[in-house]
C-alpha cells in the first residue's frame, strides 16, 4: 500500500459503503490509474478500455456491499473486477464484430499508432516477459484472455493435470520475479 494514501482500506470501504461523494473522489483519484492499467493490459483498444473503466467504477460502487475483507484485500477485489470486466468485453459479440471491422483498416490504425497501446511494457505483461515461453503462453491464456484451465487443456491438447501444474509453476516464477 503506497504511503501517501490518506485512508487505509478498512476506512475506504466504510466510506464507500456510505456512498459519499468524497469516497468516490478518493477512490477514483487513487485507484483509477492502477485499474486502467490492468484494463489496457487486457484490452488494447483505448476507447474500449475507457468504457470498461467506467463500467468497473460503477460496478465497484454498486457491489461494494458484496466485498468481503476476509477473502482478500479491496485492491485485489477491484483488480479482479477490472480484469473480469475486460475479458467479458473482449469476448462480447459487439467487440468481436467491432474487431472484424477494425481488421480491415488495421494497418491504418497501426500507422497512426494512437489507438492501440503497447502493452508489453505495462502491468503484469511486463512481468511475464521474463518467463519462459510455455509459461508465458499459459498466463497469457489464463490471465489475459480468461480461459479456464479446462479450456486451455483442450486448446493446447494437454491433460488438465499438466495445465494445472504448469500454470502453478508459472505463477511461482511470477511471484519470484515480483519479489525482487
Amino acid at each position: 500500500m503506497p504511503e501517501f494514501l490518506k485512508y487505509n482500506e478498512q476506512e475506504l470501504v466504510a466510506m464507500l459503503k456510505q456512498r459519499t461523494q468524497e469516497a468516490f473522489n478518493y477512490l477514483y483519484d487513487n485507484y483509477s490509474a492502477s485499474l486502467y492499467t490492468v484494463i489496457v493490459s487486457v484490452i488494447q483498444d483505448k476507447e474500449l478500455a475507457n468504457d470498461v473503466l467506467q463500467e468497473v467504477f460503477i460496478k465497484i460502487w454498486r457491489q461494494i456491499d458484496q466485498y468481503n475483507a476476509d477473502k482478500g484485500r479491496l485492491f485485489t477485489w477491484m483488480i479482479n473486477i477490472s480484469r473480469n470486466a475486460s475479458i467479458d468485453t473482449l469476448r462480447s459479440k459487439s467487440y468481436n464484430s467491432q474487431k472484424q471491422n477494425r481488421e480491415l483498416t488495421e494497418s491504418v490504425y497501426n500507422a497512426a499508432g494512437s489507438v492501440n497501446i503497447e502493452t508489453d511494457r505495462i502491468g503484469l505483461r511486463k512481468v511475464i516477459t521474463a518467463l519462459k515461453e510455455d509459461q508465458k503462453v499459459l498466463i497469457e491464456l489464463a490471465y489475459f484472455q480468461g480461459y479456464t484451465q479446462d479450456e486451455i487443456a483442450k486448446l493446447l491438447n494437454m491433460p488438465l493435470g499438466t495445465v494445472k501444474t504448469r500454470l502453478r509453476s508459472a505463477l511461482i516464477n511470477l511471484r519470484a520475479i515480483l519479489k525482487k
Partner: peptide, 26 residues
Amino acid sequence: YDFEIMVEQQANENVIHPPAFIKTNI
C-alpha cells in the same frame, strides 16, 4: 496478503492514467 501486496505494488508502477473526462462521465 503478502502476494496481494506484491501485486498491488507492481500494479502501482508505471501506471497509465485514464483520460480526465472518464471521471466526469462516471
